[in-house]
Design a protein around this nucleic acid. Structure first.
Lengths: 199, 199
DNA sequence: TATAATTTTGACCCTTGAGTCAAATTTATT
DNA sequence: AATAAATTTGACTCAAGGGTCAAAATTATA
């Protein structure tokens, strides 16, 4: 086989995959116990590694937190990127998006963290900028809905802040083993979001 | 004047007042920067004190966090304690309560914190127990609304989790100096909450 | 099998911040 | 003014946890 090129590429892939696993695992820990309550040693152990082995894959703890944030925002961007069908109202679209966000946070192991103050200034700014960009898209959609008549009037920003809270609060109570199943939550939340703002 | 009794009482009052000030000030710091990012030294300085002076009023940092949680729950209990007028639907009542919660978190300097994992087991259990007690009251009210026909059917717990998220998310974005004024937010949120669950 | 690259580790260093204490200062009482 | 109580502080101790490093172990390559 033509390994001369693919082999080193596979090595990189292995490395990247392991690195992602580190970030994801750390994300779970941060989500459950909080950034400062989850030590690098804990995170390493939960992957069957030792601390120095972790540091082979990441520069420092803050970098891990940063990537957790960005990973979640990437996932949200991906959901937001899908162009909506022309026949749907902005409200319909928002309902669909919101349901997908919920599923992403429950089903898929994506962790939407809130601890932004544990980042140093440049990173904090970067994360907040990403967050605002997503918020802006959503607010824009709310305004579109107010124009197409599907969403009732009122401060669009407040409309959005309200239901984004429901999303961020998921971390505090959602339990994959619990009574409430991902799909059920997504469906319920999407509807409650819709009703809250519909015209 | 008959000081023999009132004087020592005043001393205690002074002490208690200063102690409360410490808790409240710490609460602001925890809310803004997070429990672990706000050092006891910071908290002391923001009150014009030094660290050892703080420790004259509180046992340790965890105690401060605990009291912050309890203080917020006390305020919520107080709001919840008011008997509702017999002619109001449960939904009306819920709307009123929710608006009051929002005002309490914005106008009054009450800090509703989410960091429960930085508490040791017994304290964490105590805080979660208080939280659940409040949640239970609210869920009960939701169910009452489903009985009196003012609130649409669906999992009452999910109804509540959704709008409680909006409340907890306030910390992340509310700024007393910002564009959005307390009363406006309270009114808007109360309505959006109502619409989300009304029959 | 020998050699080189990658991955992992035990043992360490170092900073940060919680918490303490004996002594100083301020405030009230006789 | 003298004494006692309450309050505040400078100067510490100490543990936890982030991060490093030289060497060992593993895996791939010649």
């Amino acid at each position: 086989m033509d390994v001369a090129i693919t082999e080193p590429f596979n090595r990189e892939k292995q490395f990247a995959a392991k690195r992602r696993a580190v970030i994801r695992s750390a994300g779970q820990a941060f989500r459950r116990r909080g950034y400062h309550n989850a030590s690098m040693k804990d995170i390493a152990q939960s992957l069957g590694l030792t601390k120095p082995a972790l540091y082979y894959y990441v520069k420092n703890k803050e970098e891990v937190l940063l990537e957790c944030h960005l990973m979640a925002y990437d996932a949200m961007d991906e959901i937001l990127a899908v162009k909506r069908a022309a026949n749907l109202t902005a409200l319909d679209e928002l309902e669909r998006l919101f349901g997908q966000f919920v599923e992403m946070l429950t089903d898929a192991g994506v962790s939407l963290l809130t601890d932004v103050d544990s980042l140093s200034e440049p990173n904090k700014a970067a994360v907040l900028s990403r967050r605002r960009k997503i918020e802006r898209k959503i607010v824009k959609l709310v305004k579109a809905g107010q124009n197409d008549g599907s969403i009732r009037n009122g401060d669009a920003q407040l409309h959005a802040f309200f239901f984004m809270g429901a999303l961020n609060w998921l971390n505090a109570w959602y339990d994959a083993q619990g009574r409430l199943k991902s799909e059920q939550i997504a469906h319920h939340f999407a509807l409650q979001m819709r009703r809250g703002i519909q015209a």
